[in-house]
Each structure stands twice: as structure tokens, then as C-alpha cells.
């Protein structure tokens, strides 16, 4: 066993960005005969390395489409890397999207068992923790209601309670807490802090820098699939914020410039009109 609990080594993830997806035999043969079978490469992650020691809490930051979710998916085994390797020494609970395995036709009770099993727990194990889960989710009165009648907040409460029923070695959280009311969100944060105090390793994705700073001690900054910076959170968060501010400022400046040009043009047109009137 190495000293790292998560070891992402030089990982590259490749997608096919072909303009049209060929998903049936007929099209496949037509394109094959016409020699139009294209593979347009798109690298969602490029040579990303991330080494996490047990007990650390990492924030993964970056703008939309920078590969944050892809990285989390690689770590939670959903995606296989095209190049490089991922080694995880421990159990992973990934909250990439709450209620991944929730079947709307089943009741909450049945869903707790089903979801628990999907996450890899045994039925007996879920049974032992059933009351705890129900209590945390605050859904005592709706246990035998089909989940299709639930609100989205109720659904995410159910999902979060099942996913965190036990202390995993690694907890992966991807902006799932944006739903639900303030009280429940606070409860989730508390639970996560509790886990952190217990030595769980955390991987956290959020656009909210304050939450990141609160929860995490390290950060990885991704941009277009490449690592910009990684290390202690303070420095990175500041750097990131300044870049974002700069970009905002730039955009603002560009906007101002454009507006000025427009104003100028409008003025010119007006002057021309005036001239014409005078000539008449």
C-alpha cells in the first residue's frame, strides 16, 4: 500500500466529439462504405495527476467544462482513463448526483434497500441502519409513498441519507447540495464535517469559494482539462479569484468598448441625417 489513498497518475480521458453520433447499424454501414467514419478526438482531461493522502480534503475548482466532473467520474470508476492509471485504496462513496438509482415507481422504503445495494452494501447492512437513514432524511411519514410523488428536495434528502449511511474512506461530492432547504443543507454540511473530523478523505466540487475554503485544505484548479495549479487552498483560491475577477474585468472592458463603438456609429448616422436635412 502506498502512502496515497487516491493516486491519479497522468490521466488522459478521451471522448469522441464526432458531429453526429452513429448509433445504428444502417448508418454505420453507409458511413463505412462512404469512408466517412470519423473519430474526432476530444480530451476531457490531459495528463492530470493528483495525489491525495488520507484525511486530506481537496476542492476541485475551475469554470464550467474544465473537466471537474470527469475527474470525479474517473476516481469513482465510472469512466476508464484512456491513458494513465488511477489507484484508490479504500471505499468510495460518490455523491455525483443524488438518487442515482432511485426508481420513481417504488416506495421510499423499497428505494432505500435498492439504493443501498446499488452502492454495494448488503441487505442486512442496510436493514441495520434503516432507522438511522429514515431519521436523517426526515421522511418518516412518506416511507410507503412511491418516490414519483416526491419533491426534488425530498428525493435528494433520500439520496444523501442513503449515500452517507456509513463512513467511507473517501467521500466524493459534486455540487449536489444546491437542492434542498437551508436547514437540510446545513445538516449535510455538518455530516460532512463530522466525517472529515473522523478522518474521511474528501473530494469536493463547488463554485462557491467560501464553502471550499471552509471545507477543504487543498485544491486542484483545472482549466480545459489541464491542471493549472494544485496545492494548498489559500494560495490557489486567491489566484483563482483574481483570474476570475480579471476575466470579468476584461469582459466588462470589452463590453464598454463595444458600447462606445456603437454610440459612435449612432452619432455618425445622426450627423449624416442632419447634414442631409440641411442640404435639402
Amino acid at each position: 500500500m502506498s502512502e496515497y489513498i487516491v493516486d491519479v497518475d497522468n490521466v488522459t480521458v478521451r471522448f469522441n466529439k464526432a458531429s453526429e453520433n452513429i448509433d445504428n447499424l444502417k448508418e454505420y454501414f453507409v458511413k463505412l462504405v462512404k469512408h466517412e467514419l470519423m473519430f474526432k478526438e476530444f480530451l476531457a482531461l490531459q495528463n492530470v495527476s493528483l495525489k491525495i493522502k488520507p484525511g486530506e480534503a481537496w476542492a476541485i475548482i475551475g469554470t464550467n467544462g474544465s473537466g471537474k466532473s470527469t475527474l470525479l467520474k474517473v476516481i469513482s470508476r465510472i469512466l476508464k482513463p484512456y491513458k494513465g492509471s488511477v489507484t484508490v485504496n479504500g471505499s468510495v462513496a460518490s455523491l455525483i448526483e443524488l438518487g442515482a438509482g432511485i426508481d420513481p415507481k417504488l416506495t421510499a422504503r423499497e428505494n432505500i434497500y435498492l439504493n443501498g445495494c446499488i452502492l454495494g452494501y448488503s441487505k442486512k447492512f442496510v436493514e441495520e441502519r434503516f432507522d438511522e437513514i429514515v431519521e436523517f432524511s426526515e421522511l418518516e411519514d412518506f416511507l410507503d409513498t412511491p418516490v414519483k410523488n416526491f419533491s426534488s428536495g425530498m428525493k435528494s434528502r433520500l439520496g444523501f441519507s442513503v449515500a452517507t449511511m456509513v463512513k467511507p474512506d473517501i467521500l466524493i461530492v459534486d455540487e449536489v447540495l444546491s437542492v434542498g432547504d437551508v436547514l437540510f443543507r446545513k445538516k449535510c454540511m455538518n455530516k460532512m464535517n463530522e466525517m472529515l473530523a473522523d478522518g474521511t478523505t474528501l473530494l469536493f466540487v463547488s463554485h462557491n469559494m467560501d464553502t471550499c475554503k471552509n471545507m477543504c485544505d487543498h485544491a486542484l484548479w483545472l482549466n480545459k482539462g489541464e491542471v493549472v495549479m494544485s496545492g494548498e487552498i489559500e494560495a490557489i483560491a486567491d489566484e483563482y479569484m483574481t483570474t476570475i475577477e480579471e476575466r470579468k474585468a476584461k469582459e466588462k472592458a470589452a463590453k464598454k468598448k463595444k458600447q462606445k463603438e456603437l454610440d459612435k456609429k449612432a452619432k455618425e448616422i445622426e450627423e449624416k441625417k442632419k447634414k442631409k436635412k440641411l442640404e435639402q
Binding site: K105, L106, E110, L114, C117, I118, G120, Y121, S122, K123
Partner: peptide, 17 residues
């Protein structure tokens, strides 16, 4: 075999539904 219980759950769901 690591997911025996899940198999049971999924089969039970299909039949129940």
C-alpha cells in the same frame, strides 16, 4: 457475486412492479 443482494433487489423489483 459481490452484488448478490442487488441482483435480488432488482429481480424482486421487476416482479413486484
Amino acid at each position: 457475486l459481490n452484488y448478490k443482494d442487488l441482483l435480488y433487489q432488482l429481480v424482486a423489483r421487476d416482479i413486484k412492479l
